[in-house]
């Protein structure tokens, strides 16, 4: 029993240090990515296309629908309490500060996290990563760094899209339920919105993007020999990525209210 617990602790500790080493290696290579004329920029463009551009549709539908739901729920309850104006604050708190970054991160993890972990895992199995090493191309700077930058940039931009569509969607619903003027509606929203809200939202997206991409690339490279490891690692990549995002979200939110 003691031996098994010891082995588990040793294994987890080794994994943690390996993960930290991987993170610092990626951070170091990321710093030099823009200084060198590297062939990885093509990979970066493709990653932004896949993670950012191709996900706009999903984000738009989700945020429009969500904005509508929040407005319908809010408008059915708040006026009864004489707090109809609170809908603007609630929209900003829910969409800008919380659900925007978190749901965007979930979409990115589900689409790009699995794709990256699966692609890298298959590359390991097919000896493609060894081929990069053999030709002198550092797999961290060519395969990982462009994906980390691409996913992070895309997550931040998708969060902005989420906010635009979410707040726009809520306006469209208010037109059906309690018509208000465009200027009045957006004045109410802007009055409820602070720079700190926007900053918190962007910081969250940035951190979530880094977490999702690092988890996906890390678990992609954890595949060693068998193709059966690929889906297992893809599940780990998304599962751990999402859990870490939620933990980070809690920490940032607590820090926001403690300031």
């Amino acid at each position: 029993m003691v031996e098994r617990v010891g082995a588990w602790v040793t294994s987890r500790t080794r994994d943690m240090f390996y993960g930290l080493g991987f993170f610092f290696l990626v951070a170091r290579e990321t710093l030099s990515f823009f200084r060198r004329r590297v062939v990885g920029r093509r990979v970066l463009s493709l990653q932004i296309l896949f993670t950012g551009v191709e996900a706009v549709g999903v984000i738009a539908v989700m945020s429009l629908a969500l904005g509508a739901v929040i407005v319908i729920q809010g408008l059915s309850l708040l006026p009864q309490l004489g707090q109809g104006k609170l809908i603007y604050t609630i929209l900003i708190i829910v969409i800008t500060r919380e659900l925007g970054p978190v749901l965007t991160a979930f979409v990115v993890a589900a689409r790009s996290g699995t794709a990256i972990a699966t692609e890298l895992g298959n590359m390991v199995i097919n000896h493609e990563v060894e081929a990069y090493l053999a030709t002198g191309i550092n797999p961290i700077s060519y395969l990982v760094v462009p994906r980390v930058i691409g996913v992070t940039v895309s997550t931040v931009i998708l969060n902005l899209y989420f906010n635009v569509f979410g707040l726009l969607g809520s306006y469209l619903v208010t037109l059906f339920t309690q018509p208000v003027g465009f200027v009045e509606y957006y004045s109410g929203l802007l009055a409820a919105l602070s720079i700190t809200d926007v900053g918190t939202s962007l910081i969250k997206s940035f951190i979530f993007g880094v977490i999702i991409s690092i988890a996906a690339t890390y678990y992609g490279f954890k595949v060693e020999r068998a193709p059966t490891e690929v889906p297992q690692m893809a599940i780990h990549a998304v599962g751990r990525g999402v859990v870490l995002c939620i933990i980070a979200d809690a920490v940032i939110t607590i820090a926001y209210y403690l300031r």
Binding site: R36, V39, E119, E128, E130, A131, T135, I137
Partner: peptide, 28 residues
């Protein structure tokens, strides 16, 4: 240079890109 038993070509790149990538990398 290394020739792998199973060729180990990069599957997501075309034949031309497979051959050009090492050259571009070492000769930016």
């Amino acid at each position: 240079g290394f020739v792998f038993q199973d060729a180990a070509l990069w599957q997501n790149l075309t034949v031309r890109q497979n051959l050009a990538l090492p050259v571009e990398h070492h000769n930016p």
